[in-house]
Every structure is written in structure tokens, then in C-alpha cells.
Amino acid sequence: MSGALKAAWGLTAFVILAGAAGWLITGRAVFAVFIVLGVLTAVGALLTGRSERAATKEEHNP
């Protein structure tokens, strides 16, 4: 796992937790946007990880 991918997962966790905490503390649903952005970041990290693994397999199996 590359450093950029680790950073993406860390950012994902932070954004989702910050959104959930903000929503619970204030009761304002606007913090749901943070949760949605965190989920979108997770999807991007998953897609990046899959393409990274595919590229690695191609390099090892010409």
C-alpha cells in the first residue's frame, strides 16, 4: 500500500468521523455532507488500490 493510499484512508476516516461528530453534537444535518464526501473518498481509494494491484501484477507477469 502506497503512502498516498494510506493518506486517502486516513482522510476518509477523519472526514466521516468529523461529520458524524458534528451532526451528533450540533444536530444539524448539514454535517451529512462530510459523511458523503468521506464515502466518496473511500470509493476513490478502493478504485486506486485496485488499479495499483492490477499494475503490480502486470509488472510481475509480463
Rank of each mutant, 00 (worst) to 15 (best):
Arg28Lys: 13
Gly10Leu: 07
Gly49Met: 03
Pro62Met: 11
Ser51Val: 07
Ala13Gly: 11
Ser51Leu: 07
Ala55Ser: 04
Phe31Ala: 12
Leu5Ser: 03
Ala18Ile: 06
Ala21Gly: 15
Val39Asp: 03
Arg28Gln: 12
Val39Ala: 14
Ala20Ile: 15
Met1Lys: 03
Gly10Thr: 02
Gly22Cys: 08
Lys6Arg: 10
Ala20Arg: 13
Ala4His: 02
Phe31Trp: 14
Thr48Asn: 04
Arg28Gly: 03
Leu46Lys: 11
Leu46Ser: 09
Lys6His: 02
Ala8Val: 03
Lys57His: 00
Ala32Asn: 08
Met1Thr: 02
Phe14Lys: 05
Phe14Pro: 02
Ile35Gln: 13
Val15Asp: 06
Val39Gly: 05
Leu5His: 04
Leu46Trp: 12
Gly19Leu: 14
Ser2Phe: 01
Val36Gly: 10
Gly49Pro: 00
Thr12Glu: 08
Met1Glu: 00
Thr56Ser: 13
Arg53Lys: 12
Thr48Trp: 08
Glu59Lys: 13
Arg53Ile: 02
Leu46His: 06
Arg53Ala: 10
Ile35Arg: 09
Ile35Cys: 14
Asn61Asp: 06
Ala4Pro: 00
Phe34Val: 08
Val43Lys: 10
Ile16Lys: 09
Lys57Trp: 03
Glu59Asn: 04
Ala8Gly: 01
Ala32Cys: 05
Gly27Ile: 07
Gly27Tyr: 07
Ala7Asn: 01
Val39Cys: 11
Leu40Phe: 14
Leu46Ile: 14
Leu40Arg: 11
Val33Ala: 15
Ile35Asn: 09
His60Trp: 06
Gly3Met: 02
Ala13Ser: 12
Val33Asp: 13
Trp9Val: 05
Ala42His: 12
Val15Ser: 09
Leu11Trp: 04
Phe31Glu: 05
Leu37Thr: 13
Gly44Ile: 03
Phe31Gly: 06
Val15Lys: 08
Ala21Ser: 15
Gly10Ile: 05
Leu47Ile: 14
Ala55Gly: 00
